[in-house]
């Protein structure tokens, strides 16, 4: 599913070139549930953004589901993200002005799904996340856990093969975090590949494989 080979990525801050990823080689098979851990600043988010086709690499190659994506154009990447990847963020990133339902419909707007089908699929995704009763609520009327359920519904609605999540429980209490992980587990058993960044061992334990980064290289890779 995911094949990273000798990925390098650095950020330029003024004169300084700051290497963040230094030769990451990594394969993730379809259906895996991977947790990425490591100290703050070790490059977890950077790596996840590359896996999620949100960011480009400086060197190395990346192929996703057999398609080489490291040289793809912006619009091609947008299409790939739209069809094949779902995103879950620590801060949910729901659009505040519009209802939960409209938030979930968003990815389908960019894949030209008809309004009726969009609504029906969005409701279905909200049902799977057990939050359909709040479909008409604005994000500000929802708790953190409820917002994250809406965000996961949004990530799922185009039935992506890959779900990437950057500290999805980082803003939630541990009870709510466990509920979210239970949903992840269900999705994974249904066939979705998941790559998730987390700081918490308890959350990482839900994954079947744990990769630990240190200073931009893979320190350990257990399970899988």
């Amino acid at each position: 599913m995911i094949a990273l080979s000798d990925i390098n990525k650095s950020y330029r801050v003024g004169e300084l070139v700051l290497p963040v990823l230094r030769g990451i080689t990594l394969k993730v098979a379809a259906g895996e549930f991977v947790a990425i851990m490591g100290p703050s600043g070790s490059g977890k988010t950077t790596l996840l953004n590359i896996i999620g086709c949100l960011d480009s690499v400086d060197a190395g190659s990346y192929s996703l589901a057999g398609e080489v994506v490291d040289r793809a154009s912006d619009d091609d990447l947008a299409r790939i993200r739209n069809r094949h990847i779902g995103f879950v963020f620590q801060l949910f990133n729901l659009i505040p002005r519009i209802s939960a339902l409209r938030n979930v419909e968003l990815p389908m707007i960019y894949s030209d799904v008809s309004p009726a089908e969009r609504r029906q699929r969005a409701l279905h995704a909200l049902q799977r996340m057990a939050i359909a009763d709040r479909a008409d609520h604005a994000p500000s009327q929802l708790s953190g856990g409820q917002q994250q359920r809406v965000a996961i519904a949004r990530a799922l609605v185009n039935t992506p093969e890959l779900l990437v999540a950057d500290e999805p429980t980082g803003s939630l209490d541990s009870g709510t975090g466990r509920e979210i992980m239970a949903l992840f587990g269900e999705l994974n058993r249904a066939g979705t590949t998941i790559v998730m960044v987390t700081h918490e061992e308890e959350i990482a334990a839900f994954a079947s494989r744990i990769i630990r980064l240190r200073d931009g290289i893979i320190a350990t890779d257990e399970g899988g």
């Binding site: 912006d74 069809r83 995103f87």
Partner: peptide, 16 residues
Amino acid sequence: TREIGLRKAVGARRSD
């Protein structure tokens, strides 16, 4: 800005 980032993440192209 964040909304734009999110829209792009879920598949909005530049032209959108």
